[in-house]
Simulated scan of single mutants.
Amino acid sequence: MRRTLDYYFAPQSPWVYLGHARLTELLQRTNTEVRVRPADFGHIFSVSGGLPLPQRAPQRQAYRLVELRRFSEALGVPLNPQPRHFPLPGDPSALLITAVAAHDGAAAAMRLTGAIGQAIWVQERNMADATELAAVLAECGLDAERLAQAQDAQTKALYAQHTREAVDAGVFGAPSYVLDGEIFWGQDRLDFVERRLAA
């Protein structure tokens, strides 16, 4: 029987970007289905004790930059730890991914998620800007209509549903991978996801 993994994430997260290609490859190699679940981590932080980046202690902010550089080098994934357009609101890109998942399926939503991460962390583009989001949609070969659909009531309801499901599952950070009810938090836990899939 084909396994299913729930992928909860904030598309603007550098940790999501660092792990996304490896997750995509793992899912393909293990023939695992994915449910693409962008979620509102501002809300999730508020109910789980997390803090948005600008509110964290200076020591934590400084160490985050060290770790981003370490993982970028270790994984061979290019990343600018302090891109021009960050922090930025995650809702515009999260809603767009939600709309694409609903209309075009998980594979298209995964492709778009990877492109958005690349746009933020390598190309330094503003993924809260509708014009830039439209450009990335086109680069992914996706329908321009998805940008308008990202703002409709159905998409917003789905996004809220993903957020509730994340909270109910015990998710508190991004990315989180939920497999058979077990949470794996962070791109550095993908080896454990693979082991769980092999079990």
Rank of each mutant, 00 (worst) to 15 (best):
W15S: 08
G186Q: 01
A94C: 11
E124C: 09
L137F: 06
F41T: 04
A153I: 02
P78C: 05
A115E: 07
R125P: 04
T113E: 02
A148R: 07
H103Y: 14
Y8R: 09
V47T: 09
A108D: 03
F86H: 15
I97S: 06
A148Y: 03
T30I: 06
E132D: 10
R3M: 14
A198F: 08
R3Y: 09
K156F: 00
A115C: 00
A135L: 10
R111Y: 07
Y159G: 00
L5P: 13
I44A: 07
R164C: 01
Y17R: 09
D143R: 08
A99D: 01
V178G: 06
L18A: 05
G42T: 08
D143H: 06
L137Y: 01
R37Y: 03
E73N: 15
Y177C: 13
A174C: 10
D188G: 12
A101D: 06
P54Q: 12
L179S: 06
E33W: 13
P87T: 05
D152P: 06
A106I: 01
Q187K: 07
F9S: 02
F71L: 13
G19A: 00
L112V: 01
D91V: 04
R125Q: 13
T155C: 09
G114R: 10
S176C: 13
V47G: 07
G181I: 02
L179G: 05
F86Q: 08
A199F: 14
G42Q: 04
L68Y: 03
V136Q: 15
A39E: 00
L147D: 04
